[in-house]
Simulated assay, not measured.
Amino acid sequence: MGRAWIWVQWLIGWLPVAALFAVLMMTVHGAGIHEALHYSLRLMATAAVLGLVVHRVTARLPWPHPMRLAFIAKHALGAALYAVAWVLANSIVESVRVGSIVLVVGPGIAAYLVTGVWFYVMIAGVAYAQRAAARNAQLEALQARSQLAALRAQLHPHFLFNALHTVVQLIPLDPERATRAAEQLAALLRASFDNPREFVTLREEWAMVQLYLDIEAIRFGERLRVVTEFEDAALNELLPSFALQTLVENAVRHGAAPRVEATTVRVTARVEGETLLIATADDGMGAEPAALETGGTGLRRLRERLGWLYGASASLTVQTAPGRGLRVELRLPVKDEA
């Protein structure tokens, strides 16, 4: 937010107070509307300028938890000084305006001082409320970032451990293939840790997924077939890193892994208006819907992550039934840039 806009907000905040004072002067003291407006605006102008000092004071005196007597005493002294300074500032402005020394006391010096104290309390209260709101917003943003980092960190080991499990399974059966798989896993690890971004293009994500599929191809051989249908426009769109990886891994886990027959996993991506649609579908064993949403599944973590990143703008839907394959659709709003 620009400094000029902050000043505009500050002035706008004082206008209702000036209007209230003008109404009081007209109703209580019988002043005309022009006289009342001019006088009240002068009073509020000096109060607003002195209020900037109060704002700085509140920044140097954070709200204590628990409340302390010293804090109250400092603000009581500040309120008294503000009230006196306000009376003096109004007197100086009026003296300059009429060309002679004038002490502005209005209906009485006591009433002016009390009004000054009330202004101080109002300004300080608003300042502390604004800082509390800003602090809460920062805490919520930090919590969101921490939650995203935790969910993202959970996705890393989820597919890396599965890939490592593939290598371990191959060691007693085919040491040569296990060696090749270990080398590919090392490449997968490097690619994973060399890309810490929250969002990547679909093209980059698919390059990562291919490393994973290369390892699974060693494990499954001809039992795993992958077919892709990517629109050119979709390849340059952004999505959360490891999102497509999660979908593909889920298809392999619930489709190819439980069966002896060959399983085809179809991966598609296209842009529909302002939405990026990514889908995986297999003709494998399928799964119980409840099994995909409970425990530490990658889909559940991905859905939580989508909620933090997009709110209700993104969706993850699953269509499955035992023995009839699994289809997962991910819909994301098109992002302009990373």
Rank of each mutant, 00 (worst) to 15 (best):
W10S: 03
L11I: 15
W14D: 05
W14N: 07
A19V: 13
V23T: 08
M26I: 02
M26R: 12
G32W: 12
G32D: 03
I33S: 13
E35T: 04
A36L: 01
L37K: 02
H38S: 10
A45Q: 08
A48P: 11
L50G: 12
L52A: 07
R56H: 12
A59H: 13
R60K: 12
P62N: 05
W63I: 04
H65T: 10
A70F: 05
H75F: 01
L81E: 01
A85Q: 05
L88T: 06
V93Y: 03
V96K: 07
S100H: 13
V104E: 14
V104S: 12
V105S: 05
G106A: 13
P107L: 11
G108S: 00
A111W: 09
L113G: 00
V117Y: 06
W118S: 15
W118L: 15
V121C: 12
G125M: 09
A127N: 11
Q130S: 09
A132C: 02
N136R: 14
A144S: 14
R145C: 06
S146Y: 08
Q147I: 02
L148K: 05
A149M: 13
A153E: 13
Q154P: 10
L160E: 09
N162G: 14
N162I: 00
H165S: 15
H165N: 15
V167E: 09
V168F: 02
L173T: 02
D174E: 12
E176N: 15
T179Y: 10
A181D: 10
Q184P: 05
A191Y: 15
D194K: 11
E198M: 00
E198C: 02
F199V: 04
T201E: 06
R203N: 08
E204F: 00
E204W: 03
W206V: 03
V209I: 01
V209E: 02
L211W: 00
L211H: 08
I218N: 02
E231Y: 00
A233I: 01
A234Y: 03
A234F: 02
L235H: 03
E237L: 04
F242S: 07
T246V: 07
L247W: 01
L247S: 02
V248P: 03
N250G: 13
A251R: 07
H254R: 01
A256R: 05
P258M: 09
P258K: 08
R259M: 11
T264I: 03
V265E: 00
V267E: 09
A269M: 04
R270T: 12
R270Q: 06
R270Y: 10
R270H: 12
T275M: 07
L276S: 02
L276F: 09
I278R: 01
A279K: 08
A279T: 10
G284D: 12
A287G: 10
A290R: 15
A291I: 06
R300W: 08
R300H: 07
L302D: 05
L302E: 08
R303S: 13
E304T: 13
L309A: 10
A312G: 11
T317S: 15
T317V: 03
T317Y: 01
T320R: 09
R324T: 09
G325N: 09
V328I: 15
V328M: 08
V328C: 04
L330Y: 00
L330D: 00
R331A: 15
P333V: 10
D336Q: 14
A338G: 09
A338W: 06
